[in-house]
Nucleic acid binder design. Structure first.
Length: 614
DNA sequence: AACTTCACG
DNA sequence: ACGTACGTGAAGTTT
């Protein structure tokens, strides 16, 4: 038996590493006693984050309580792996920090189904996020084990992740190669592996006490664990990639990027990503740049370059000037590079053994509670179908996408009791058209509807005249009068915003959403409370839809949540029925305001919902 | 590490 | 008193 001692919060704790059969017997004895006393904390160390990449290994499984941790050498197989698997099956309730990751690791590599472990899990990251969802960079505590331990357990608790980086270097390894390459019996590796479960075990009771103090309801905690499990199931399933399509697409886009890069180089721009070079070269061609970035540099983003290339927002020729060839080349080189490398080639480089990608779904990522997804799957170009065409439904299936209808605006109508909005929604009206009619009268044009939509978003997001003018491209005078009219038509919005700000200030700068989610405000931008309330509640509307869909037996078809949309892969012959059923799951009242959804049944690829013919 | 850009809702 | 666009992930460049 290898044993390590360490002091945490004034207590001497022990990390045990069983090596012999007798050592493993002692682990069993400890486990039998410890599980009588309470939940067991669980953690894993693995070769990396890419759980589904061929060659991935589970290295250790750690179990522990507040005083003892046992690091099981899973990588050795045999008795070690056997004891880990049995312990996970029989240990009852478990505490895991950021459970999604360990659920999927243990499901894929230790024969412990997610369906078995998830219902027994308390995730300390969820507990902590419900107390303060902010990252340290946003002024919060942070949601990693290190900052939370420092705040709630012991300010001197070691940064086990950062601490290992230096051990990696000592072994001639890097951040990338360290997790797979560090010798299994490295003492720092084993100690830190053990300390993580001890810290998790100590975190849970403190966070529970804080929940009681703040009045965070157990129902909210339960709800978040259900959502996390559903998201983990979707991540485990992943998405099928059309390799015969994505591979040549990546090649074609790489050639295109290279062609335009060479064109830009002829004007002295050797790096199209260098804003300074682009600005200087454009100035040398007689163009005048006026827009500046926050730090004062000349701005050379898409909004600046498109007009110089005589292109509108949809990249169509305007015909107002001679296109600047450098602006055109920079725009096209950057787009082709991004689409090719981040998306097409990105998919190809992340395939599992079955040609699937598994973007990580973080169910509670943003400070508003919104989800986030890795590998660019939330950011695929929607103006064109070429990239989404690379994502396929299963063989014999079609893609079904169901969107909430104007969900953030409906949430606003519900939360702020916006009378005219509620009436319009109840009457089944198109909200943006309704607003346009209220502002411009019955003869409003489609352009007026578009401006109304822009103003609505501007309102919800807290934008002012300048930004809305820039975003909508509408004349300033028109936006100005529309904004004034908007406040007359929907006077409740401003009143609700100031009420929410007052409540937040009285509650330690924390707005509490209707589900009980705590949303800390930044002191100098309390106006953001309107957006936080809408974005956060819209996220919970999505969460409710996910629960409804699982209850309706649709989980096996669900693939990806995208804020106000749920993407599915459905057997072609059932698609129409499942689409109707999905709409029903996404339709329910929110404080008397109907939330509605519209399903679209596509073809085999995701791109088919964006105009592709397959 | 900070900044800038670009992709999305 | 007034007005403030919100939230992400990923990559490249510069410091």
């Amino acid at each position: 038996m290898r044993e390590f001692r360490h002091d945490i919060a004034g207590d001497r704790v022990t990390v045990h590493v069983p090596e012999t059969a007798e050592d493993l017997d002692r682990f069993r004895e400890w486990l039998d006693r410890a599980r009588e006393r309470g939940p067991i904390a669980v953690d894993t160390e693995t070769t990396g984050l890419d759980i589904y990449r061929p060659g991935y290994r589970l290295r250790t499984v750690q179990l522990g309580d507040a005083h003892d941790a046992w690091v099981l050498l899973y990588e050795r197989g045999g008795e070690h792996a056997q004891h880990a698997r049995e312990a996970l099956q029989c240990c009852g309730h478990v505490l895991i920090h950021n459970a999604n990751f360990d659920w999927l690791v243990l499901d894929e590599h230790a024969g412990t189904p997610l369906e078995s472990l998830a219902p027994r899990t308390v995730d300390t990251r969820i507990l902590a996020t419900l107390i303060d969802p902010r990252q340290q960079s946003e002024g919060g505590i942070g949601t990693g084990l290190k900052p939370l331990s420092a705040r709630w357990v012991d300010p001197t608790a070691p940064d086990t992740q950062a601490g290992l980086q230096s051990v990696f270097r000592a072994h001639g390894l890097t951040k990338e190669t360290g997790w797979a390459g560090i010798p299994l019996m490295d003492p720092t590796f084993l100690l830190y592996a053990g300390l993580d479960v001890i810290l998790t075990a100590r975190l849970e009771p403190v966070l529970r006490r804080e929940h009681s103090r703040l009045g965070i309801r157990p129902e909210l905690v339960q709800y978040e664990h259900e959502i996390a499990r559903i998201c983990a199931v979707m991540q485990r399933r992943g998405l099928l990639v059309d390799q015969e399509y994505a591979e040549p697409l990546a090649r074609r886009l790489a050639e295109e990027a290279e062609r335009y890069r060479a064109m830009a180089a002829r004007y002295g721009v050797t790096k199209v990503g260098s804003s300074a070079q682009v600005a200087e070269a454009l100035a040398g061609m007689g163009e005048t740049l006026t827009e500046r970035t926050k730090s004062g540099a000349l701005q050379t983003d898409k909004a600046v370059l498109l007009p110089l290339a005589d292109l509108d927002r949809d990249w169509q020729r305007i015909g107002a000037r001679e296109p600047n060839p450098l602006a055109n080349a920079v725009l096209r080189a950057k787009r082709a590079k991004k689409w090719g490398e981040d998306y097409a080639q990105g998919f190809m480089s992340k395939l599992d053994a079955h040609g699937r990608i598994h973007p990580a779904i973080a169910p509670l990522a943003a400070r508003t509670g919104r989800m986030s997804v890795t590998d660019g799957l939330h950011q695929l170009p929607s103006s064109d179908h070429v990239v989404r065409r690379a994502i396929l439904a299963e063989p014999g299936h079609v893609k079904v996408s169901t969107d909430f209808v104007a969900v953030e605006l409906r949430v606003l109508a519900a939360l702020a009791h916006v009378r005219r909005m509620r009436e319009a929604i109840a009457a089944g009206e198109d909200l943006h058209a309704f607003t346009a009619r209220m502002v411009w009268g019955p003869d409003f044009t489609p352009r007026h509807r578009k401006v109304s939509k822009g103003i609505s978003f501007g309102k919800v997001y807290g934008g002012g005249l300048d930004v809305i003018v820039r975003q909508t491209g509408a004349p300033e005078a028109e936006v100005r009068s529309a904004l004034a009219a908007y406040d007359r038509v929907y006077p409740e919005i401003k009143r609700a915003a100031s009420r929410w700000q007052r409540q937040a200030v009285a509650n330690g700068m924390v707005y509490v959403s209707p589900v009980g989610r705590r949303l800390p405000l930044d002191r100098d931008r309390t106006y953001a409370v309107t957006n936080y309330a809408c974005q956060s509640t819209a996220r919970d509307v999505l969460g409710q839809a996910l629960l409804n869909m699982e209850a309706a037996g649709l989980l096996e078809y669900m693939r990806l949540p995208i804020h106000d949309e749920i993407l599915m892969s459905v057997p072609a012959e059932d698609a129409a029925d499942v689409a109707r059923e999905t709409e029903r799951c996404m339709t329910f009242p929110l404080f008397g305001v109907p939330i509605a959804a519209e399903a679209e049944v596509g073809g085999r690829s995701w791109g088919s919902l964006y105009g592709a013919d397959y």
